[in-house]
Structures are given as C-alpha cells and as structure tokens.
C-alpha cells in the first residue's frame, strides 16, 4: 500500500480514537447521562419489587427467566433502547450546534468523518453500558435462586447481543437525522413510536421496513411470554439475514452521517 494512504488511514483512526476518548469522558459527566442512568435502573427496581413480593407471598412462583424475557420485550426493546439511541444519537451533532461548541471541533486538524465516528462510538458505548448494567442486574435479581444454571446465561448473552445490535442500528439512524434536521428529536419520536410500532405488525414483507422486525427475529422463540402479543404477526427473517440487515442499516447511516456532516454548513445562531 502507498505510504501516504497508509499514513492517512493511521491518522484517521488516531483522530477518531482521540475524539472517542474525549467524548467518552465528557459523555459520562453530563446531566443527560446521569438522568438516563437512573431511568435505565427502573427495571432493576422492578425486578427487586417482583422478587421481594415472590419471597413474601406464598402463591405460585413465576420463573425468573420468564419475567426477564417479558422485561426485555416490553421495557428494553420497545422503549428504552429507542429512547436512549434517540437522545444520544441525535445529540452527536445537534448538541454541538445548539451549544455552539462545534466551532472548537471543526477548527481542529481532524477529518470530519473521524469526528462523527469517534463521537458515535463513544456515545454508543455509553448507551450499551447503561443498558448492560440494568439488564445484568435485573437478570441476577430475577434468577438469584438459579445462578448456577449456566444455560440461563446463554439467554442473557443472546438478549444482550440483540439489544447491542439494536442500539448500534438505531443510534446510527438517529445520528443521521441529527446531522441534517433541526427538530431531530421530534422526528425521532414519531419514527420510534409511530413508524416502528406500526409497521412491524404489517403482514408480509412490509414489516421488514421496521428495524425492530430484525431485532425480534433474533429473539429466542419462547421470548414472548405473557406479552406474546408483541410478537403478533411476526414473520421472522432468518438470524443471518437479520444480523446482515441490522449491520447494513448501521453502515449505511454511518456513511450518510459522515457525508452530510462533511458537506452541510452549520450556522451557529448568535
């Protein structure tokens, strides 16, 4: 490979890494992160309440994995990862424009795509950590009697992988929205709780236009539980196809975000 191209690639990755570490540190300190950390702990609180009520009641004990699956379906997949990806994804660009701090970044010797990818990676990692902490705690609390049953950890890993893919995919989409729309949050809310919530229940191949379709296709077959109506009309795509589609969508929106951010002019209002 030509030395110059090699140097450019190295420079690009070094710049991206520097942006990543800057925004990872910064992202962990913001009020927004602290508030969302609290929200992501709601299922842990719920798990504790359920467990305590099970301990102190003499009624029929509900299987921990069953409750855990429902929690993932209702709270994480349909709500939390969407909200987290929306607020963190759109803010990759929009918080710099609204806070007028963009000027410090675009007057540094870093390629604009390196900034986008670096900050996206930092914020995505923060969101994954937030979700993972809540999921793991909930899992441990709900399965405290069966922690030595290692087959249950497979389920935990599978759910975590699905949620991670969801976060990567939604965040890249919302980041793209944030790079060119001023009211990206509003659009994002409409997309999350309008489009995604409706299109996934359409029959036939139309449901494949919703990201959540691919995420649900990756869930274990028994994951519906009491909330099996959420899998209503799901005509699952194959796991390979689902993973491919989620990665493809992520990649497309990452590239589009880089292109828009490089070409668009951001006017910082005085």
């Amino acid at each position: 490979m030509d030395m110059k191209i090699k140097e450019k690639i190295t420079f690009f990755f070094t710049s991206g890494r520097n942006v990543f570490s800057f925004f990872l540190r910064l992202g962990l300190k913001t009020k927004k992160t602290k508030i969302f950390y609290l929200i992501s702990f709601l299922p842990v609180l719920m798990s504790l309440i359920i467990k305590f009520s099970q301990v102190f009641s003499n009624g029929r004990q509900i299987e921990g994995t069953f409750i855990f699956s429902n929690m993932i379906m209702v709270f994480y997949l349909q709500f939390l990862i969407l909200i987290l990806a929306l607020f963190f994804g759109t803010s990759v660009c929009s918080e710099e424009v609204e806070g007028k701090t963009l000027t410090y970044l675009v007057t540094r010797p870093i390629p604009k795509p390196a900034f986008i990818l670096g900050k996206y990676s930092a914020y995505t990692l923060i969101v994954i950590l937030m979700v993972a902490v809540g999921v793991i705690f909930s899992f441990v609390i709900l399965n405290v009697d069966n922690l030595l049953d290692f087959s249950r950890y497979k389920i935990l890993l599978r759910y975590m992988a699905v949620l991670t893919l969801g976060i990567l995919c939604y965040s890249s989409f919302f980041m793209f929205i944030g790079t060119f729309l001023k009211r990206s949050i509003l659009f994002g809310l409409i997309f999350s709780f309008g489009w995604e919530n409706v299109v996934q229940y359409f029959p036939g191949s139309t449901q494949r236009f919703a990201i959540v379709h691919y995420l649900k296709s990756l869930l274990p077959p028994s994951s519906g539980g009491r909330f099996s109506f959420l899998l209503f009309r799901l005509e699952p795509s194959s796991p390979g196809m689902s993973i491919f589609m989620l990665l493809l969508i992520t990649g497309i929106f990452l590239v589009l975000s880089c292109v828009v951010f490089s070409l668009k002019e951001y006017i910082l209002d005085d």
Partner: peptide, 20 residues
C-alpha cells in the same frame, strides 16, 4: 483539515463544555 494544525480560532460566543 490539515490546515488547522497551523490555525488557532477564538470564537465570539461564550460557549464551552461546561462540565469539564
């Protein structure tokens, strides 16, 4: 971007990453 290693810019706006 390579030009910005030799440029320093001071914006007019009072904008910072206030948490840092």
């Amino acid at each position: 971007y390579s030009l910005f290693s030799i440029i320093g810019f001071c914006p007019e706006q009072d904008c910072f990453y206030d948490e840092l």
